[in-house]
Design a protein around this nucleic acid. Structure first.
Lengths: 135, 135
DNA sequence: GCGCGATAGTTTATGGTTGAACGAATCGTC
DNA sequence: GACGATTCGTTCAACCATAAACTATCGCGC
C-alpha cells in the first residue's frame, strides 16, 4: 500500500462520517441536542468525569466544560462534586438525558446504517472488526 | 447488526480519524498549512472551482472562501476568473503549493499508515475496499 | 505538617466556522 | 432580447472551539 493511499483512505473515511453526521444533525437538533453534546452525553455512563470525557472523546477540556454546561442547562445531566476528590465532578444522566441520548444515537445509527446497508452483513462485521483493531 | 452498533462504529471511526489528524496537525502546521487548508489544497487539481470544493469536502461555502483566501495569501494557490463563466474562479496550485500538499499528505499517510500497520496487508486492502463501497 | 509538582475543571481571549443575506453573472423561457 | 430563477463567490454577524492562564485540590517526599 503506497503512502499516498493512506491519506486518501483517511479523507474518504472522513467525508463519509461528515456527510452522515451533517445529514442527521437537524433531526438531532430537534431533540434539543447539538451533535457534540450527543457524543458527550453518550459517554457519561462509562466515563462520568469530565477529564475522562476529554481523553476518550479526543476533545480539549474547555470544550467538554462548555458542552457539559449546556447539557446541564438543558436538564440532560446533573453533576455533583466527588466526595472522595473535591476536584472531580461526577456527572449523571437524567431520565430526559437518557431519552434524548437513546433517540439521538438511534438517528445516527439509522443514518450510518443506511450506508452500511451497501455492504453484506458479513462485510459489516468485517468492517467493525477492522475498526476495532485500529481504534 | 443492531441499530445501536452503527452509532458505536461511527464514533469509533470518528475518534480514530480525530486522533490521527490531531497527532499530525503540528507537523503540518510547520509546512505553513492548517489541516483544513491541506484538504482544500489536495482537491484543487480535481476540483478547481470553490463551489465544487464545497460539495466534495462537505464544507460550507464560506469556509471554502476563507481557506482559499489563506492559501492564496500563503502563495500556495493562484486564482483567475474563468473566461467561460465569469462567476467562477479557477484555482491553480503553485509549485510551492504542490510541494506543501505532497509533504502534508505524506505526513498524514505516515500517521494513518502507522495505525493501519496493525492490520495485515490483506486486511488493509479489505478495509479500503469496504470504505470505497461506503463513500 | 509543608512545600511542590501534578491534576480537575473553569475562565478568558482569540480565532475559526457557518447560516443568512448580498451582488454579480448565467441560463432558460417567453 | 428581457425577465425570473439559479448559481457563483463573498461579506457579515453570531456562534463555537480552544490555547493559555487561572483556582482549587490532591498526593508525594521530606
Amino acid at each position: 500500500m503506497a503512502k499516498i493511499d493512506a491519506a486518501k483512505m483517511w479523507s474518504l473515511n472522513y467525508r463519509l462520517l461528515t456527510s452522515v453526521i451533517t445529514s442527521v444533525a437537524p433531526a438531532i437538533a430537534k431533540l434539543g441536542l447539538e451533535t457534540k453534546e450527543l457524543f458527550v452525553l453518550a459517554e457519561i455512563d462509562e466515563h462520568p468525569h469530565p477529564a475522562e470525557l476529554s481523553a476518550v472523546l479526543c476533545m480539549p477540556k474547555p470544550t467538554v466544560t462548555v458542552n457539559v454546561k449546556r447539557l446541564e442547562a438543558a436538564g440532560f445531566v446533573r453533576r455533583e462534586i466527588d466526595a472522595a476528590d473535591l476536584r472531580r465532578h461526577r456527572l449523571m444522566m437524567t431520565a430526559a438525558g437518557r431519552k434524548a441520548m437513546t433517540r439521538g444515537l438511534a438517528l445516527l445509527s439509522e443514518a450510518y446504517g443506511e450506508r452500511l446497508r451497501r455492504l453484506t452483513a458479513g462485510q459489516q462485521g468485517d468492517l467493525r472488526a477492522l475498526l476495532e483493531k485500529l481504534a
